[in-house]
Design a protein around this nucleic acid. Structure first.
Lengths: 144, 144
DNA sequence: TATTGTTATACTCTATAACTATA
DNA sequence: TATAGTTATAGAGTATAACAATA
């Protein structure tokens, strides 16, 4: 026999279950709205870190975002080929690559971050501004 | 040039970024602690829904957890082969499969849910009980 | 010796198309 | 004609090992 109504109340008492469901919901919306810019959430994160940290190295990107170096290579190459970023040998460490946005990349991110701001208000429409701040703070207490 | 210290303050203002980081941190801990039971988080969710909803169908599992039917087949088969669950033809709908835990599965989940409870307190050690409840409520406002 | 970036590659996760049996 | 479960398979995401260049 099937059940009339699936009882998910137990799972809903688990932080991990709730965090994952919320994250997936948000990231799906993000993907749709960022499709105009051809940016997945990870691409947005990479671009955003480069914009706000000019000269950041690949290694620094990896450790900041929890990406393995081999998996970053393709993303960075793609962003470079699209004419959004520049890769330069690090001035003092010949092994490292320093990353910068060029004009096109900076302009794209300026637009993308506008959309990201709109998304924030849309995604947290059910929350008051105070609740939204509280949510951030509590989530950071878990992973920071 | 690399940067002295990577500035992630912008990303930390985004709900999606925080929710994803928190979810990944929690799920990683979950995976480690549930290794004794050989349960990934998705296996735990499936088993838990079967325990709390005896007779739930595969389709109901899929819609409840956001899993595509083809991807559930292998998980259910595996759980069945491990002697944790039973699959029976639905009494009134010959197309559907009703799922039940057997004694071994129920016993395993009783232990697993104990560990899950311990994990909850560990993962939210930085939060007061009130903050923990608040976090749940706010996350659910986003995805429900 | 250790580290950065890279290639090659494997493994996992997720998605689609098409089939069967039942409704 | 539509739905539940299944198979086969493709694609995306993530992981490890090994290498060249540099520290």
């Amino acid at each position: 026999m099937s059940v009339d109504r699936v009882d998910t109340s137990y799972l809903e008492t688990l932080v991990g279950y709730n965090a994952r469901r919320a994250a997936l919901t948000i990231i799906e919306m993000f993907l749709q709205r960022m499709a105009v810019f051809q940016l997945r959430s990870v691409d947005f994160s990479v671009m955003s870190l480069i914009v706000h940290n000019p000269g950041i190295t690949s290694r620094q990107l990896c450790t900041s975002l929890g990406i393995r170096p081999p998996n970053l290579v393709g993303m960075v190459s793609s962003l470079e080929q699209r004419g959004l970023i520049l890769r330069q040998r690090h001035a003092k460490d010949g092994r490292a690559m320093s990353l910068y946005t060029n004009e096109a990349g900076a302009a794209l991110m300026q637009e993308a971050e506008k959309v990201a701001l709109e998304l924030e208000t849309d995604q947290t429409r059910q929350l008051t501004p105070t609740e939204r701040k509280t949510l951030m703070r509590l989530l950071q207490k878990i992973y920071l």
